[in-house]
Simulated assay, not measured.
Amino acid sequence: MASEQAAGTSGRRGYHHGDLRNALTEAAVERARAGGPQAIVLRETARASGVSSTAAYRHFANHHELVVAVKDRGLAMLAATMRAELAAGEPCPDPGDEALRRLRAAGLGYVRFAFAEPGLFRTIFHGVTEGDPMIGRRQAAAAAGDGEGHLPGTPDESEESYTLMSQALDELVVLGRLPAERRKYSDVVMWSAVHGLSVLLLDTELAHLPDEIKADIVRRGIDVALNGL
């Protein structure tokens, strides 16, 4: 298969059809890491990948499709950070304590990703629209929920960064540590806690606090959320 050649500048690398989409996504991810969602520009991404805009449009019909690809990649990185936080801790012998440890670790991993990758974090949650990976697929749910605590517009079971917390909550119910009647919407509450901490400590005057104070705030915030369950 003929390669899709770089445009305009000799010596740029050409990409075969099979890997250009990935190269474009990687280039767009790097732009988002450096400058947030506003830095994702299809033409500039094509240039960074060494191809023409025409070649890029064969893989992404528009800017929105490229942004969605970046969000997908960012969500995978977020989940990896949360998994790393889970793996770094010592498992608890008691299953209930272990479920709580995992819930806490998942929340800490979420916030730490936000601090480490603010550009990608802002991109993931910027301008959520139809087709966005952060929108749940249960669109048939009523606006007030579907009776099981699933709200429309929340991530679905395929979104690992969300289910890492959700599954720990389910285990707490099975183990009798969380009353079943209090399980409803608990994943949204926990998500709100860690997401709210992330946004406040990134994008408000609290961003200027020393790192050790931010860490204390995060720990305290997660404590409050867990105790509230």
Rank of each mutant, 00 (worst) to 15 (best):
L164P: 08
K214H: 15
A2N: 15
A32P: 01
G145E: 14
A46H: 01
G74P: 01
T154K: 05
Q139G: 07
L78I: 07
A87Y: 09
D97S: 07
A55Y: 00
G196K: 10
L178W: 02
D216Y: 05
S166M: 08
K71N: 05
C92D: 14
A114R: 02
V218T: 09
A76Y: 06
M134Q: 10
R104H: 08
A105T: 06
S3M: 09
P91T: 13
R183K: 14
I135M: 14
G176V: 02
I213A: 13
G89V: 12
L120P: 02
P118K: 04
Y185M: 10
Y57P: 04
S186K: 02
G96Q: 09
S198A: 12
A28H: 00
V188N: 15
V194Y: 13
L172V: 11
L86H: 15
R21V: 07
R13F: 06
E181Q: 08
A80P: 04
R47M: 09
L202E: 11
I213T: 15
H208F: 03
P37Y: 02
V41S: 05
V174L: 13
A48Y: 08
R33V: 00
Q38H: 04
K71C: 05
G109A: 11
D223K: 03
E90D: 15
D216Q: 15
L209G: 13
T129L: 09
G196Y: 05
A56V: 06
T45K: 00
Y57K: 06
V173D: 13
V29L: 07
A80T: 11
E65W: 01
T45C: 04
E157H: 12
I213G: 08
R102P: 03
V188L: 11
S52R: 02
L24R: 01
V189Q: 12
D170N: 11
E157Q: 13
A141E: 12
V68C: 06
S53M: 08
N62A: 06
A76S: 13
I40L: 03
P95I: 05
K71G: 03
I213K: 12
G196A: 10
F113A: 03
A27H: 00
I124L: 12
L178G: 01
T123G: 14
T129R: 13
Q5V: 01
V128P: 12
E26Y: 02
A28C: 09
K214L: 07
G36T: 00
L164F: 11
Y15P: 01
A69T: 06
H59D: 08
H17T: 11
Y110R: 11
H59G: 01
A106S: 15
G221I: 07
A88S: 15
P155F: 09
L226I: 14
P93K: 05
K214Y: 10
L201S: 03
A140Y: 14
A56G: 09
